[in-house]
Design a protein around this nucleic acid. Structure first.
Lengths: 242, 242
DNA sequence: CGATCTATTGAGCCTATTCAACCGTCGTGG
DNA sequence: CCACGACGGTTGAATAGGCTCAATAGATCG
């Protein structure tokens, strides 16, 4: 293991684990690589389930479609994340998976993955870890939605994003959200105006800064500042600082 | 492979699948059965992960503990549901699992489960199905939280509960919530007063009825009524359709 | 019976939504 | 080239939905 560190708090080994998993997949299965661009769908709701997918590069949003046609972003995925897990039980995808960026997605037939997993326990471990992490992440999302006011929810979202980047060895002080305010709002259960206002307020407190005029590039001087902002908002449901 | 079918929407066979899974577990692993009563903890946050748990009878709530001590109910589990899945990746439980009722919980060491799964593919399938279902369920929770007003969220909650009972072959017209209004509110991201008001309104519309004076027994004449109530609230945040 | 817990309901307030106007950027086409 | 519209973002004013605070009542239990 090469000794390189970027972030103190998060484990550096996570990025390596991702790389290992991707290598393992490639070595032991006929993965089908696919280049995707923003807006491309990796799979669609209702489509028959056959394969799981792993994000190699790029970012993917998972959109739940309700019966009456409304859309709900329920998860975001980055390098190393698995897609389609929610379809295993039912046999058909319950969501759309949409690329938010140019990237590469690998697909592996679920049946073959299981077969390979019998002789490669690490594969099974990787799959279970991915599912487990997703469950834990969903719980955190739920808690944010239930317990935090809008501003803190946006802060928590940024923190999550920065954390996801840090875990993958990418720079965390400057993140570029490949989402519109409307998409962010949809994911966080609020309106696009509220997202905009929250971001403006965070910028006013100097917790974040906008780079360029196109305000999707966000500079985060200190990630801990986001954390403490969330923490404080959580403790006092209705406190207002000047 | 024995003849098995997966229904798209509302499978009658679900209850049978649960029974089969429990039998399978019992037959191929040293499950440790444990009787639990309301308030008992199956596992605690921070505790080292070693075993997964399956609800045999009774109901269990999973409570996420945030850094600052606030509690958040993130999931509810019934017969056949697996507990502790979110701990696989990290190696330690991230939540408390608390019995809401008298019941029985089976525990199986994860390592032994994996070993057994190598020779019993159905075991692995059952585990994956459970995780997959939980992920899909989490997505639905997220969507409810994000998109529905309080009344509809309560209605959706009751519908979910009734559905869970129905899938397990239990009576669905009369459900007994083993939760206080405060717990329900915590789970649904609203205050206990809002829960109370929502229930009162639903009762006023005759979508539900209270049995007895202790108002946790709820009679649901027509489950479809709950569904249509949710659907209508979802479609029009403020719009008007005859 | 008093003490405690849970639930219901009302009144006022506050947060986040709705509605609206405005600005900047980006393509497109006259 | 500029006019134009489409789109994404910001900000303000007014509204409303849900929260807070508070009072009341039933239930349970020692």
């Amino acid at each position: 293991m090469t000794g390189e560190r970027i972030h103190p708090s998060c484990d550096e080994s996570f990025g390596q684990r991702i790389a290992q998993t991707l290598q393992l997949l490639q070595a032991s299965l006929p993965v089908q690589r696919r280049m995707v661009h923003a807006g491309d769908k990796i799979y669609r709701v209702g489509q028959e389930f056959g394969s799981l997918h792993v994000v190699s590069t790029g970012m993917v949003k998972v959109v739940n479609l309700s019966a009456d046609g409304r859309e709900q972003v329920v998860a975001l995925h980055f390098r190393g994340d698995w897609l389609g897990l929610e379809a295993i039980a039912t046999g058909s995808y319950a969501c759309d998976a949409v690329a938010m960026d140019t990237g590469e997605v690998w697909s592996v037939p679920y049946a073959q993955l299981l077969t390979a997993a019998l002789s490669q326990p690490q594969l099974l471990r990787a799959l279970h870890d991915a599912m487990s992490r997703q469950l834990a992440r969903d719980h955190d999302s739920l808690q944010s939605l239930c317990a935090l006011p809008t501003d803190a929810r946006v802060a928590s979202f940024l923190h999550y994003w920065a954390d996801a980047m840090a875990k993958r060895g990418l720079r965390t002080d400057q993140i570029s959200l490949h989402m519109t305010r409307a998409e962010i709002g949809n994911y966080l259960g609020m309106t696009l105006e509220s997202v905009s206002r929250a971001l403006s307020r965070l910028a006013r407190c100097d917790i974040i800064r906008f780079l360029e005029k196109g305000r999707r590039e966000i500079h985060i001087p200190r990630v801990e500042a986001l954390d403490s902002f969330v923490r404080q908002a959580a403790a006092l449901p209705a406190a207002i600082s000047d």
